[in-house]
Design a protein around this nucleic acid. Sequence first.
RNA 1: GGCCCCAUCGUCUAACGGCUAGGACACCAGGUUUUCAUCCUGGCAAUAGGGGUUCGAUUCCCCUUGGGGUCACCA
Length: 470
Amino acid sequence: MSSKVRTRFAPSPTGFLHVGGVRTAIFAWLTAKQSSGEFVLRIEDTDQKRKVEGAEEHIIESLAWLNIKSDEPLIRQSDRVKDGIYKKWAEKLIENGRAYADPYTPEEVQKFREQAQTDKKPFLYRNNRPENPPKWDGKTPLRFKAEPKEYVTHDEVMGEIKTSPEVIDDFILIKSDGFPTYNFAHIVDDLEMGITHVIRGQEFLASLPNYRNLYEALGKKEPVFVTVPHILNEQGNKKLSKRDGAKDILEYREQGYLPEAMMNFLATLGWNDGTEQEIFAPQELLQKFQLEQIQKGSAHFDEKRLEWISGHHIRTKPLDELYELVKDFWPQAAKNYDDNYKKKVLELVQERMKFFAELPELTQFFFEDLPVNPELVTGHKQLKKLSNDELESLLEKAKETLEQSDFSREDLQERLNQLLETSSQKPIVLFSLIRISTTQAPASPGLAETLEVIGKETAIKRIAKQLKAL
RNA sequence: GGCCCCAUCGUCUAACGGCUAGGACACCAGGUUUUCAUCCUGGCAAUAGGGGUUCGAUUCCCCUUGGGGUCACCA
């Protein structure tokens, strides 16, 4: 009795995809895939003016990054226009007396609209519905002849929505350029494609009653309606949009975010499984996702949370896998080093990386000598208390100690500990001085493991350089 | 403005009408022999306001306020 779930993601090719659109796609994909249903991508390109070159490929690539792909060949509405599909459905409506030619010019319609405004009434085209419309010649808009009525619409997320007949109007089915409107095309397509769950953004909620009216005129069964609330910008005062500076989802790929982290972040933005779990692998999402658990209210985009989730996924990646993934993110100087060395470096910074673009600043000193930065010493809360002579003798001692080490981590640790005792210095003083001298970086991994990877020759050389600069 | 949707810490959220409103991010403090990060411990922090219903409201109803959406030959 229950047929296979089929969902779709239907963007218009007007540019890149931002997190809002992608989240809707993720929800649709999860809904289909968790019940071994099908997910299809449909390009809503009925507005030729807004079409952006390359957008279609960009959308496909964005979804592919997240491992989301269509189960069927891409559907393009413009292709279906050529096949005369929408016209066929429109003619059926005309035959049934549920569609008619709009005899007015755009200017005349605009007049009606303004009149309604001065009358302080909501504009309804049907108040001016022509009594004897001409036969439709395809050169003028074709309008739906609505049968206004009350509806109680069930939405999986929003619940029951009551609306009055006032919201139902004679919307345009086919534009004067021969292309169908979204309002008409998406219903025809969803029907023909056997879509069972229409999952889309909140901006369509107000049109739902109109769509229901059309389903009835067509004599077709409605799909399940699923309205996903918007993602608001970080200030929370506007729906996330390209205009408002929302980023292209692929920018996160360029920044080196893991796709599973992005999916985790977006899926749990406005959805949770009722437990305290925060981190989900894609497989877990597939198991646990429930449409009914989607939040009704809008959510704010929070990049800090994305970073935290991303860092978490990076930390739990097996080193070899991670190594493959960061290939393109190493600092320039790393090209002179072999895989083995870079892998050791990666292991040390794995737990402090939030996204791969941080790799260069995190690892630069493993690959090249940085110029001595006196401020690291003079600005250090402990080191600045020591005189230059004291610093010099301490560092000299450190150099002698390290020269005797075989630079294995264990040996380094042991000798460093001994030096701590013989020099009777606090760890913060001794270790900071060595760490700064050998890295010239404000932060680095643990001292012994850092020294081990850098190697004896380089470490000694850098200390000598620091000594000269004191 | 009409219509529709929404409302718990700054943010994401949990709480059959019933324990001190829980968790996470962020932030702050402390700990893990230096720093950054991780990890651990602790802290700060919320039911928008007002009416009802009820023995009892975060939870149900109404009003107000606030936010969002929509009123295209865009989707």
